[in-house]
């Protein structure tokens, strides 16, 4: 039995069918990856898992428990952390308070120690611990959102495009943290990404979505070498052609 199982999920925005029957499994201890173009329905899948949206049909099973229809705070307390698309920090709380809120459902004495661990993952946050989150840069807010989800000590962490809008250096930094968290804390990860290269590099198993359906699934190793993936997500052939053309144009200008 996988840690998280989605079976024939259908989710609607009013009359619009955003998820058209999806089944996927997230195995415990792994980094699973969900790829797809804009509007494919990746965010909707995560919202359906975390209870922000209720599926019209199908089942979401976490640790053997059917959780569809639960309120999102209840899902969180079951051990699913969610780093939503677009950071979504608490803007007028300090960095430290944001992290404390991440541990809202916990009652153990290790919270302070976990805050230190987040500061260890993201040292910039330590320097800004007392500042309001609204005054962090976009990348720092992303780190805070990840740190805040870690504070829940989740069994499963959902990450929605953590690389969005970050510099290449920051993207690889965040990728390192995801690998470290998966490794050190044995945390299961479901990673949604547009940055397929990064995702397939760190992921173990991957799914590819197109307009509300899963069209391909395999180990990340295999996905990386699939020609469709190379063309559409890694842009391997595409980039080559464009690069050459640009080079030619330059020559003719001189």
């Amino acid at each position: 039995m996988a840690l998280l199982e989605l079976t024939n999920i259908e989710t609607y925005y009013g009359p619009i069918m955003a998820i058209r029957g999806i089944s996927l499994n997230v195995e415990a201890g792994r980094i699973s990856v969900l790829l797809g173009a804009n509007g494919a329905g990746k965010t909707t899948v995560l919202k359906t898992i975390s209870g922000a949206m209720e599926p019209q049909k199908g089942r979401v099973t976490f640790n053997g428990e059917s959780i569809q229809g639960y309120d999102p705070d209840r899902v969180a307390r079951l051990g699913i952390g969610h780093v939503p698309e677009g950071r979504e920090v608490f803007p007028f709380l300090s960095v430290e308070e944001n992290l404390q809120m991440g541990a809202f459902s916990r009652n153990d004495p290790d919270i302070a120690q976990d805050i230190e661990r987040v500061f260890d993952y993201f040292p910039v946050l330590k320097d800004k611990a007392r500042q309001q989150a609204a005054y962090l840069s976009g990348g720092q807010q992303q780190m805070l959102a990840i740190g805040r989800a870690l504070m829940l000590r989740p069994t499963l962490m959902l990450l929605d495009e953590p690389s969005l809008g970050l510099s290449p250096r920051l993207v690889s930094e965040i990728a390192d943290i995801i690998v470290r968290v998966n490794d050190e804390q044995r945390m299961t990860i479901l990673l949604v990404e547009q940055n397929a290269r990064m995702a397939l590099d760190i992921g173990h198993y991957g799914y590819v979505m197109e307009v509300g359906r899963i069209v391909m699934e395999d180990t990340c190793e295999k996905l990386k070498s699939a020609t469709d993936i190379q063309e559409f997500y890694l842009g391997i052939r595409d980039e080559g052609v464009r690069g050459r053309r640009r080079w030619k144009q330059r020559k003719t200008w001189r």
Partner: peptide, 24 residues
């Protein structure tokens, strides 16, 4: 903690739900 959680829920309802604050 409860007071800060109330601020959090008011500043960003969805994020409050996601961290496990019983917003309702």
């Amino acid at each position: 903690r409860l007071g800060i959680a109330m601020q959090a829920a008011s500043q960003n309802q969805l994020a409050a739900f996601y961290v496990g604050i019983p917003v309702k």
